[in-house]
Nucleic acid binder design. Structure first.
Lengths: 269, 269
DNA sequence: CAGTGGTCTAGACCACTGG
DNA sequence: CAGTGGTCTAGACCACTGC
């Protein structure tokens, strides 16, 4: 019923002798893993298994400490890391919650295109126009990005985002067909919040992190038409791979951003 | 001799009643500040004052705990935050060190342009060509970025970075003249590591974080010549403001990146 | 071996939320 | 008011580094 860390604590008072990987044969690095990392992995497993749904509260620290037979401080350190990775959200006095892309305000976490005045809220939400959503086969490039085989079934979505009725972003998305079975242009059109929120509620897929490769390009004729721009206006090409838990890639996306009234904002730490 | 946190701990056993800002008059938020934040601020002050130089070790946690009259755990939490902000670097068994841009490997922290193969080390260090370094007056835009007055003295540097002898980055930098008094093209040419490392050793200016605004643009004739490219090749325009401690802006930089063999890489968390 | 950061515990109390 | 996360302490022991 209750998960247990992989080490032994027969006596509570005894400082625990950390367990190494029991079966790991002849590894040069014994791969010492602190207790809180093991707890973190267990919580991650529950998240992945859907034991707690997005925006729901997870058990309190004291409860988790009891379940895992460790001190509250150890649970705390595990949860701290998950919170810093944006998988959990802590709210003092209320509890700890499973992060979601549906959250008002902190949504569009992954959209870094900002209006020139620096204030995304000043232009309101984007108008979304789904151009198509079709079933197709993975190209070599898409297959490599999604860690599937070339020719495997994928869904391709094409859409345009407009701000103040000015087309600004043209996006193509590729999704593995299996986890997204049943996704249609209609369902995309009918949904309200960010697409990643839809993925959470409808397909149980939570995007956790992403990587983007950015280049400057000139649009072709078709892209010009869709963005109502001309072939001499350079665009930002933003290629994204988004990952769920366990670093499993679940989406490849190529965006073309018009940067005459917006810019891509990045913080360097 | 020894700094002291702003609260009272007359009895060590007594849990400390946190001090609020003593003089803060009628603030709606009492601005409760945890002890470790106060310690963090004190350490930050020492860093800023140059009490410990870049790459030097700061006192051990036990020593700091003694100096500040708090427990080691509290110091630890303060140092943890500073480390996560890349102001300090922890090395188990050795100590905690002041972060520096001179560090091999983790240098070029702020340069996100990566060769197509994804491995920056595969092409070796950039060839740097300083075009000019001149004293001038701050334009409205530069003044606003550097939080100085329009017309104030600034240094402007222009340089080209090449990879495998292919000009790839054209950069213009603006620096407030006062802190960088004595900076010349020669000194830039003679220095070896990253420019920010030079700033640390020669001018005691440590860049701590930065923000970038990215757009797609077409180069003008002069830019084409310097980058040996043509007017039809779109470039990434990367405008950066770099900050020292206390969020004080100390550099404005505009880069033009050629993205035919490189891309700007960004991680979304 | 001593000294450093890293982990873990147990317990006390504080700040915040909501009924 | 009870319950949650947040802070702080004191002490023990572990892992890593370098002499």
């Amino acid at each position: 019923m209750s998960a247990t860390p992989i080490f032994n604590t027969d006596s509570a008072a005894a400082a625990n002798t950390q367990a190494r990987e029991s079966v790991a044969p002849l590894q040069p690095t014994p791969a010492f893993s602190p207790l809180y990392q093991q707890i973190k992995a267990l919580i991650l497993q529950s998240l992945k298994a859907g034991e707690w749904k997005p925006s729901a509260a997870i058990p309190s620290e004291i409860e988790l400490a009891g379940r895992f037979k460790v001190s509250q401080g150890t649970v705390r350190k595990a949860v701290d890391e998950l919170a810093s990775e944006n998988l959990l959200v802590r709210r003092q006095g209320k509890g700890t919650f499973v992060a979601t892309h549906a959250e008002r305000q902190i949504q569009y976490r992954f959209l870094k295109l900002i209006p020139d005045n620096g204030d995304p809220s000043s232009e309101g939400p984007a108008q979304r126009h789904i151009i198509e959503c079709k079933r197709t086969r993975a190209s070599v490039e898409v297959a490599r990005a999604l860690a599937i085989r070339t020719g495997d079934a994928v869904l391709q979505v094409r859409r345009v985002l407009s701000f103040a009725n000015i087309p600004t972003i043209l996006e193509d998305l590729w999704l593995p067909a299996a986890p997204f079975k049943g996704l249609t242009a209609e369902r995309l059109r009918d949904s309200n919040g960010p697409m990643y929120a839809l993925f959470e509620t409808e397909f149980d897929v939570r995007m956790v992190r992403a990587e983007e490769k950015i280049r400057a390009v000139l649009p072709d004729a078709e892209q010009c038409a869709l963005l109502k721009t001309d072939a001499q206006t350079p665009l930002l090409s933003v290629e994204r791979i988004a990952y769920t838990y366990n670093d499993a890639p679940m989406e490849m996306r190529r965006g073309l951003y018009l940067t005459s009234k917006h810019y891509y904002r990045n913080a360097l730490n």
